[in-house]
């Protein structure tokens, strides 16, 4: 099944400077890179999957406490961050699109836009984290929520919710930080003219990673921020 814009039948197409000697042609090279990246993403699905499983187990055990604890997360900031991340996914897709139409400066522009939006996300996340520390909602010895619903045993159970919140969003944020680093390198390489319509596998694979991180957040937002939101 054809999956790229590369016309492998064109004379000279197989001699693209980026073609590694162990591949027959550019198309095979791209399909191998895409498949390899997806295999990595499958391990990422299972990596985050363990945490999602823990979330389901404990939410099933303490549904009321999870709903009460969820009320302490800021839906507005979480919603804005969801929109910011979706925008960054669009700019990431457009960076690859720019490579496909051979627009070098446009690739760099959209990569920088993606980095900027990712940074906005992390900035908003920092504000949220600071708020949790301020209100003593971080699990541990200083955990002391000012909420009648989260006292005693319920308070202890709610620490599991906040622990999951920090681990899952923290791990997600770590992925974003790594992604921003990767995109920064790619922006430099793109500026140097390393990628064109025939070869942009690093952009494609980094895009897969970036979109995957977006998908994780698409699930984290309703599962963490919006439990029992109608009862607020």
């Amino acid at each position: 099944m054809a999956s790229t814009t590369i016309d492998t039948h064109a004379p000279g197409a197989a001699h693209h400077p980026a073609l590694q000697h162990h591949f027959d042609n550019m198309e095979q090279q791209k399909e191998s890179a895409t498949l390899g990246m997806w295999l990595f993403l499958v391990t990422e699905i299972m990596f985050f999957g363990g945490l999602f499983t823990a979330y389901v187990v404990y939410r099933h055990a303490f549904p009321g406490v999870f709903a009460a604890a969820s009320h302490h997360l800021d839906v507005t900031l979480g919603g804005i961050n969801t929109a910011v991340l979706i925008c960054s996914s669009l700019t990431m897709a457009l960076a690859i699109w720019s490579a496909q139409i051979n627009r070098r400066k446009l690739i760099v522009f959209f990569l920088l836009a993606t980095i900027a939006l990712g940074s906005v996300f992390l900035g908003i996340k920092t504000v949220e984290y600071r708020d949790k520390f301020h209100h003593h909602l971080v699990p541990g010895t200083s955990f002391a929520p000012d909420d009648p619903h989260l006292q005693g045993v319920a308070g202890q159970q709610s620490q599991i919710f906040f622990a999951l919140y920090f681990i899952m969003t923290g791990l997600h944020a770590l992925h974003m930080i790594i992604g921003i680093g990767v995109l920064a390198v790619l922006a430099v390489l793109s500026w140097k003219g390393r990628y064109d319509a025939h070869y942009h596998n690093p952009l494609e694979c980094s895009g897969l990673y970036w979109h995957f991180v977006d998908i994780v957040w698409i699930f984290l937002f309703p599962l963490l921020y919006l439990i029992g939101a109608h009862a607020r």
């Binding site: 099944m1 399909e31 895409t34 895009g207 897969l208």
Partner: peptide, 29 residues
Amino acid sequence: VILFFMHVRYSTRLTALTALGGFLWLAIL
């Protein structure tokens, strides 16, 4: 996101199957 931003709609069947397999295993877990 998977079909259009991640281009699985236009990828090889092997890639699509790999992606689907990942989520299938998550569902089993």
